[in-house]
Computed example of a mutant assay.
Amino acid sequence: MRQTSIVSRPALEASAPATRTAYDSNGEHGLSFQQPVPRRLVHRAAVAEVLLTDSVRLGEHRFLVAAQWPRDHALHNPDAAGRTDPLLFAETIRQMFVYLPHTYFGIPLTHRFIGDGLSFDFEDAAPLKVGAAPLDVVLEAEWTWVGNRPPNRYGMRLDVVLTIDGQVYGRGRISGIAVDERRYSLLRRRDAGACPAGDGDAVERTAVAPAAVGRLRGKDCVLERGVRDGSWWLRVDTDHAIFFDHPSDHVPLMVAMEGARQLGHLLVHNGGPGAPLVLVSAQVECLAFGELDVPTELVVEEADEPTGDPSLRRLRISSYQNGRPFVSITTLWSRPVAPRLAYIPTQAARP
């Protein structure tokens, strides 16, 4: 399977911090939610975009990771019903995928991470309801080496279970490789040659209103409408402070995921009866690098109602450049039951 980059170049530091294995008496297994982990360990430039706060090692390949999800966020804002943005879960998984190997397995910070897949599933039809405080989540993580050839190429998979106050709320997985700079350059040159640059201005497109795709700001809308009926395009703004938190030589996976989420939101919110559907599951298949200078068309390749239930919609949306797909994302949308409230610590537990 060809692969697309899940994260781009990390910071310049070449060594990871010492492994943390000790427990203490403050909180669950010693996990702290007081401050974010160093931003270089999750390949972020802005401290405000770091979700992980701590971790402990339970065994050779088992970990607990703490993360805090904000009540509100410039991009990952709650929906109209106050439900947490499900892509916070995807970004948390992505950050764990680079944090754990840097922190516990000695993979250099100069290595590039290239992924072949990411998925998440919530346990029920309602992503978490935003409460009166930021949401402290704990992720149970299991690491697996797959086709590992260190020190220049590492193959790996991460399986996670999302918990809050000991209760399971979701599951996820991510897989891929980490390679040194020379191997990354070889992969990029080969992939870029297979998808030559195009003229982005030659494709006529119009912006979609942010409210139609569940966003608050026009700058966060990555969906554009083509001149043909059912023609949709991905808008890639390299000046966006969150999507492009730092320079990248390709379309970041989270931009492609946001495009699939926004198009899915537009298609399932058609004004029908009952509560609107919400995104509860996504399976991402990475096929190639997405080039920044090539127009990207979003194609709905599969749309059905599982078991004939109108409260469920499954959409498979692929991103194409010059007729070649570089990522395919299958999303499941469901009509929620009453959302479960996020766990809010008591005043005694939060001094």
Rank of each mutant, 00 (worst) to 15 (best):
T92R: 05
H240W: 08
D229V: 06
D116M: 03
S175K: 07
Y104S: 10
W233S: 01
I6N: 04
R83H: 15
E204S: 09
A125T: 13
T163Y: 02
L75V: 13
A338Y: 07
V56Y: 11
A211G: 05
V37R: 04
Q347N: 06
R324H: 13
W232Q: 03
L287M: 14
F120V: 01
R215E: 02
L118N: 07
A46E: 13
A125H: 11
V300L: 09
P351Q: 11
Q95P: 12
V56P: 01
D245E: 01
G290P: 07
R350I: 00
T307L: 15
L64Y: 12
E123R: 11
M96I: 14
G200S: 15
G27A: 01
Y99S: 10
E123W: 02
P351K: 00
I6G: 15
R340A: 12
C286E: 15
L162G: 06
N77V: 11
Q3A: 09
G170C: 00
T331K: 04
V65A: 04
V278N: 10
D72M: 08
V160S: 02
L223D: 01
H43P: 02
H76M: 15
A90F: 14
G230V: 02
V130G: 06
Q35T: 01
S318M: 00
L186Q: 14
D121I: 00
D121F: 12
V50K: 13
G323N: 08
T19F: 05
G259M: 02
D24Q: 01
D121C: 09
T144G: 03
P345F: 01
S175N: 14
D249R: 06
A141S: 12
Y99L: 03
N77Y: 15
C195E: 12
R40F: 15
R335N: 06
E60I: 02
P247Q: 09
C286I: 08
D116I: 03
S328R: 13
V98A: 13
R324W: 08
V327N: 05
L58A: 11
A74D: 15
R183K: 09
D237N: 12
R39I: 07
D116E: 15
A207M: 11
K129S: 14
V203N: 03
S5C: 09
G193A: 14
A22D: 14
L267F: 00
P70V: 04
G115S: 09
G264R: 07
N26R: 14
P247L: 04
G30I: 04
L58Q: 10
L58K: 05
V47K: 08
L109P: 00
G172H: 01
P339M: 10
G176C: 05
T4E: 06
G323C: 04
R182P: 05
